[in-house]
Amino acid sequence: MGEDSEAESVDRRLAAALASLRAQHGWSLEELSGLTGLSRSTLSRVERGELSPTAASLGRLCAAYGRTMSRLLMEVEAEPPLLVPSGSQQVWYDASVGFARRSVSPPHPGLRGEIVEGTLDPGATISYETPPVPGMEQHLWVREGMVGITVDGTTHTLGTGDCLRFRLRGPSRFHCPGPERTRYVLMIVMP
């Protein structure tokens, strides 16, 4: 399966999972719109697979459903394997901001940790208004480039090799000032 058809397949499964989650919660589009701040039209188009969600909108949906982005993306897979070969690691790309997210070690029921690799193009910024699960522990380790991350109102600038450990309780923002892209590893530990 080619890269484009795999991305389309992930988008279709993600759309179905989001529609199913809303139905499980018994929420109307209007109610979900009120919880996320996303328009009914946008939510409807995302659930029908006509529109791929941005990182920010997916973050809002994850917060409403109380899931990390990794957990939601893992749920679109049938059964998470114990060994995840590099070529099988799910990659999700938000072209609107230049952000790629690879689930290196996808979440698994009964386990509290997961590893994610993120890349940000120069100038890219992603912001999340609320954490999907308040109080989750994160360790951000920069492998290449530089990233500014704002957590609890404080901005930290990390360069290659730097690591920041924090508990996520409120809004967060990631920014790649450039001139090169940023590649980082994020370890997530659920409370």
Rank of each mutant, 00 (worst) to 15 (best):
P81V: 12
S44V: 02
P81G: 11
A63N: 07
P80A: 07
R40S: 05
T54H: 08
G49Q: 13
R71K: 12
T68C: 09
E47A: 10
S52I: 04
R48T: 15
P81I: 01
P53I: 05
M74N: 06
M69I: 14
E75C: 02
E77R: 13
L61D: 02
L43S: 04
L72N: 05
G59M: 03
S52M: 09
E77P: 00
T68I: 07
E75D: 14
L83Q: 12
E75S: 13
T36V: 06
G49P: 04
G37Q: 01
L82E: 15
S57A: 07
L72R: 07
W92P: 02
A64K: 01
A64E: 06
S70M: 10
L51R: 15
C62P: 07
A55S: 15
L73C: 10
M69V: 14
P53C: 05
S70F: 05
L72D: 05
L35V: 00
T68F: 10
Q89W: 08
G37F: 01
S57C: 06
L83I: 13
G59L: 06
S86G: 14
G87D: 12
L58S: 09
L35D: 00
E75L: 09
Q90Y: 00
E50C: 10
L35T: 01
R40G: 00
R45M: 14
L43G: 06
T54S: 15
A63D: 07
G49M: 12
L73Q: 08
E79K: 11
G37S: 05
P85Y: 05
G37Y: 02
A64L: 05
T36C: 02
L82I: 05
S70A: 15
R71F: 02
T36H: 04
S52K: 14
Q90D: 00
V46G: 07
A64P: 02
L82N: 09
